[in-house]
Design a protein around this nucleic acid. Structure first.
Lengths: 203, 203
DNA sequence: TATCCCCCTATCCAAATGCATAGGTCAAAT
DNA sequence: ATTTGACCTATGCATTTGGATAGGGGGATA
């Protein structure tokens, strides 16, 4: 296997250098580092082809997962998210946003190497702890056809009045559907319903 | 190349059988068909390993992209979406939801074969027409840190009052942020802002 | 037939949201 | 020193949403 070029971006010096040192020690990797998103984007363009980027979730300029998107656009290579706090839903969203993987900082070094190797092969890495609530549950929520049409309108930012016009029904009826589908989804309001609906691919 | 097993699910008989026949004629493919999502899920489990599924977007039981999710969970193979109407944003969402590709029914047969071949190799297929507005624009919207915190709250379905409490500011101030960030995102209201924000990975 | 379920409608009221106008502090840049 | 931008607040008002309550019609099914 030829030498792979990695880029590690994390504003926490200790974490960044530790990981970098560990990977260098493994051999077979050339490791670049960056302390901010801007820095990382700069290196990504000035340096030669990079094979994998590890991006800290909480870092100046990251804008949550916005930084992931920018990095993926700038480079055409896998980008993984590293996070110290690691709420599982962030992991889910990271993958949904196109991350190659999700690495909690609590990951033991061996697993880190495994993960990097996986992602270099184009696969997606996700630690066991998160798998449980990512893959399966997707509890089957069944919306009636009408409710599906309504939630689509809601997700497009339409008002009840507009949805009513589009579907050729009264506004009160739209309200009814919004209320019932929100209940089915377990949403607290229309905005929440729209988000949950999108998470489940209902829109 | 060994024989690959495909599953085509479409409730429109003509479309389904035409595509199936065409692919069989190419040789190298064993093509199964299904007329509904339930049917497809059943075949997926009873039959031997399937290598690629083509799923009609508008089909009984599909529940928009919900059917895609279910199919992907049931099988562990690439699943592509076929659509006759083909609004480009559906294509985008399909990919985001993990589709292996998006095939408009207007696709010419040759391209279909190419697409299937690509997807069998694990790559993602997307017709040219859609590429333009999928990859690039991602126009850089810059939210201030405060606005980011606020839109996160909005996306979680919180009310302005709750967000205010969490951020320890007045409700009016939250309203202000919601208004300004909605303008930046080009959203018509908070729900729309939440959706656009998620699309851009801001949450 | 009786009983669901989906769909539709109405009225009324409380709460949330959206919008405008009119300020203020503070830090950074010109 | 002035300006600019991010941030905060207040008052007031129109609109939208959310929820309760109370129905009718039609289709499927037990």
């Amino acid at each position: 296997m030829e030498t792979k070029r990695l880029l590690i971006a994390d504003d926490h010096d200790l974490v960044r250098e530790t990981i970098a040192a560990y990977l260098r020690q493994q051999g077979g990797y050339e490791v670049l580092v960056a302390a901010s998103l801007e820095d990382a984007l700069g290196k990504a363009q000035s340096e030669a082809q990079i094979d994998l980027v590890l991006l800290d979730y909480a870092m100046p300029g990251m804008d949550a997962l916005g930084g992931l998107t920018r990095m993926r656009e700038a480079l055409k290579c896998p980008v993984a998210i590293i996070s110290g706090t690691a709420p599982p839903d962030v992991a889910r969203r990271a993958l949904r946003a196109g991350a190659a993987g999700f690495l909690p900082k609590t990951l033991d070094p061996m697993s880190l190497v495994t993960a990097v190797r996986h992602m270099l092969l184009g696969e997606t890495y996700m630690p066991m702890e998160f798998l449980s609530e990512i893959g399966q549950p997707a509890e089957q929520v069944v919306l009636t056809p009408r409710e599906q049409e309504v939630i689509r309108g809601v997700a497009e930012g339409k008002s009840n009045k507009e949805i009513a016009r589009d579907l050729n029904i009264r506004e009160v009826t739209v309200k009814l559907h919004v209320k019932t589908l929100s209940r089915k989804l377990g949403a607290r309001n229309r905005t929440h319903a729209a988000m949950l609906g999108r998470d489940m691919g209902l829109t």
